[in-house]
Every structure is written in C-alpha cells, then in structure tokens.
Write a protein that binds this DNA or RNA. Structure first.
Lengths: 109, 109
DNA sequence: ACTCTCGTATCGACAGCCGATAGGACTATC
DNA sequence: GATAGTCCTATCGGCTGTCGATACGAGAGT
C-alpha cells in the first residue's frame, strides 16, 4: 500500500552514471556510493542494481572487467565509456529541465 | 519528434493533484492544465491520463461527477477529496526531498 | 567445520506508461 | 441532412522497470 517506489524511474541510470564518474567501481560499491551521494535518500538493492548495470552495459554506456575488490573478493568493475559520459550529460540536463518544470508547476497557485 | 522523455514515475499523480487544486476540471482540461503548468515540458496522453484518474479515484483522492464542459460536451469532472489534498501535500514534500537529494548528488564531484 | 560477510546474479510478481484504437455526441460546412 | 471535424471518455496490449526473494561462490573469522 505504501509501496510508493523509493526510486523514480529514469533516476537510477543517472545515479549510476554519476557514481561512476569519479572512477571505476564494482556493483555493491556503486550501490553504497549512490546512498552516500544522496544522503541515504535513495537505496538501491541488488535486484534493481544488476539488471540496470547489464542494461546499461548493453547500451554501451558502461564497460566491465573482472578484478579484485578492496576485500580481496572477486568483483566486476564498471567504468564509463565515452558514450556513457555523453549519456550522463544528457540525463543530467534532462533532469534539470524536469526539476525546473516541476518546481514551476508546484509553485503556481 | 519529441524524444521519449517519458513521464517520470510518480510524477503524474502529483501533477494531476496539483492541476485539480485550483478547482474541479474534466479529463482533457486536466491534461491541458498539466501542459500549461509545466511550460509544455510534460504532455500526458489519454492513454496515461484516464487510467491514472481511475486509479486515483479508486484510492479515494478524487471524486467525480458528470457535467457539461465549456463546449457543451458531456464530461466527467474530477475534484480533490480531503484525502486527495493530504496526498498532494505528502507527494509535494516527497518530491522536494527527492529533488534536493538529486541536486546534491549531481553537484558532487 | 561452521558461519559471516562480500559480491554477483536471476526469477517472478507487480505496476505504470503509452500508442493505437474505439465510439458517442455535439458543431460546422456544404 | 449528409459529411467531416472536434471534443471527451475509455480500454487494450505491449513494453519496460522496480523489487523482494532466492541462490551460489568464495574469502575471512572463530
């Protein structure tokens, strides 16, 4: 009933791209970074994260390679491609337009 | 033509509630009002609008009654219930929290 | 050995959007 | 008084995306 999706559609991609803009990370580290960046407002679970990563890699925005985490664990590291950086800019602008439009709409009385 | 810029999930309800906050309107008038409020940034088609209206009426946020449009057409007018007004406030606050969190996340470098 | 944590991955249920489509009713034009 | 156009409501099917539950594998701690 109060399911009220914590994540907003289209937001997850943007947050992942942004989380990777400071350098390659592996899956769970991306999840933690997203939480951190948003002050805990957004928390993405594994069931949402990995499908998104695969989708975005398929789209050519990310490239992955196996490596080792800081805990000596086998981990897949993702990094932004050029197309991914472009996508980050595009989605950032798109979000700003949406944000401005919504702010204007909510202010009208 | 216009890019896929689909509506952001959870945004449609808020916009509809806001569009009705200034008084009762019928379906297509709501659609036009949403476009107007957002400076044309959001355009909601009939295929999205009516399911949303029915869902929201089911949830008790809206009440409907048949009447006549300004063009002498049979039209169903929707108005906010008390629960709808409460929902409007709730979703507005929620949006602001999301907006702030996103702005913070996008600003980090 | 056993368990905890880390890390990746998939599945099924569920919900929402959106284009296409339909149809009734009023209006305009010829 | 036909015909076409506009207004208004409505539904369906396909598609996509979220998310909890679940699983597996491997290193670490005891």
């Amino acid at each position: 009933m109060l399911r009220k999706t914590s994540l907003v559609q289209g937001t997850l991609d943007l947050l992942i791209l942004k989380a990777l803009s400071t350098g390659p990370r592996h899956g769970l580290a991306i999840s933690q970074r997203v939480s951190q960046m948003t002050g805990g407002a957004f928390q993405v679970g594994a069931g949402s994260l990995f499908p998104a990563l695969h989708r975005m890699e398929q789209a050519g925005w990310l490239a992955s390679s196996w490596g080792e985490s800081e805990n000596n664990r086998r981990a897949k590291f993702y990094k932004l491609t050029k197309a991914g950086t472009r996508q980050l800019n595009t989605e950032t602008e798109q979000w700003e337009r949406i944000s401005i439009a919504m702010a204007g709409a909510l202010k009208t009385s």
